[in-house]
Simulated scan of single mutants.
Amino acid sequence: MTPDQIPQLLKQVSYADPRVLPEDPKEIAGLAGLWAVVLADVPAEFAVQAVGAHYAKSPYPIKPSDISTRWQALVHDRMSRHTGTFEPTAHPELDPDDEAGFRQALAAERRAVVMGHQPPTPLAAITSGPAAEEVERRLKELGTYMPPSVRDALAPYRPAAAARVTAIREGRTDALAIACPVGTCRATEKQPCTRPGKGGRRHRLTNPHPSRIDAATGAAA
């Protein structure tokens, strides 16, 4: 809002709540100056709507922060649903080498979304077009299992998991596919074998117990 719009807003507020508007003209001027600072980024139309929404649910005098908080929440909601996928091809008037012009167009688009002049660009726009299948494949890969390249990179830090992968690749029995039958081990499915230690601690074994290997072999057969 501009400073000259604030007095009219305060007058409208006073129709619903006379307590907000003081009688002293100097106090009114000071109040208007404060509201102008707080509501500098808030559209006048939204401010009026926010006043009505406030008094529809609250008997307390409205503060400028009540209006600005509502506006910030609306802006956050709109921008959280906007991917910001600005497409230069949709603006043939732009020079591809005009970096300043591109930034201005991008800022104008975001401003239009904030002000409600343009709907947010949904996420679906990212996965549309010729590359949609590749995007979906990569999203599925990342969401359902660890990519092989990542698994191999983490192998030194995950010896048990790496051993399972190696066994499967070489066609050997995956002993960790079943729980260990050794009574003192307590290793469940997918967990490495252990042995009792001092103080109730358990120590992981590099290789599965032979009995577990035999049991896994029999189960696979």
Rank of each mutant, 00 (worst) to 15 (best):
P120T: 03
W35T: 05
T2Q: 12
P159V: 03
T127P: 05
R158I: 14
L142Y: 13
E136H: 10
R172A: 10
P96G: 05
H209L: 10
L154T: 09
P25V: 02
T188N: 02
W71I: 04
G197M: 04
F86R: 10
M79K: 13
W71H: 11
R70T: 12
E170N: 11
M79S: 07
L139D: 06
A216N: 01
P147D: 12
D95H: 01
L94H: 01
R195I: 09
A107P: 13
A131R: 12
A105Q: 05
A112T: 08
H203N: 09
Q8R: 14
P208Q: 01
E45V: 15
V114T: 13
T188Y: 01
G218V: 03
R195K: 11
Q72W: 05
D41M: 14
R186F: 02
L94N: 00
P43L: 09
P18Q: 02
P25A: 00
P96F: 13
P192E: 08
A32R: 06
P22H: 00
Q191N: 04
Q72E: 05
A16V: 10
A32P: 09
E27M: 02
M79Y: 01
S68R: 15
T127S: 10
R186W: 04
P3A: 04
T89K: 02
A56R: 12
I168K: 13
D97A: 07
P25S: 00
A44M: 10
V165M: 11
Q118E: 12
Q49M: 12
L31F: 00
V38F: 13
Q12W: 14
